[in-house]
Amino acid sequence: MRIPCPHCGERASEEFSYLGAADPLRPPPDATAEAWHAYVFLRDNPAGNLREFWHHVHGCRRWLIVTRDTRTHAIAACVDPRA
């Protein structure tokens, strides 16, 4: 795969490491056990577009959010969440 890093340009996927879905948001400290369980363990795992974290380890070292179709690997977007 080639990932279009917003800082470094299009780069080969082995420059990056993968974490997983970007959408579950970390609950507040006092959230329920169910909310924490859902955040840490449950995944939509869609066959289709997925917003996911990739870390540009051998580049800018930014954690990027890539929108990618898990059936075709087509990348619709790659953004730095801070930007």
Binding site: E14, Y18, E52, R68, T70, R71
Partner: peptide
């Protein structure tokens, strides 16, 4: 391969 996928194919790296 290390990333979520439903495509039954692998990557070169």
């Amino acid at each position: 391969d290390g990333y979520s996928s439903y495509a039954q194919r692998g990557s070169l790296p």
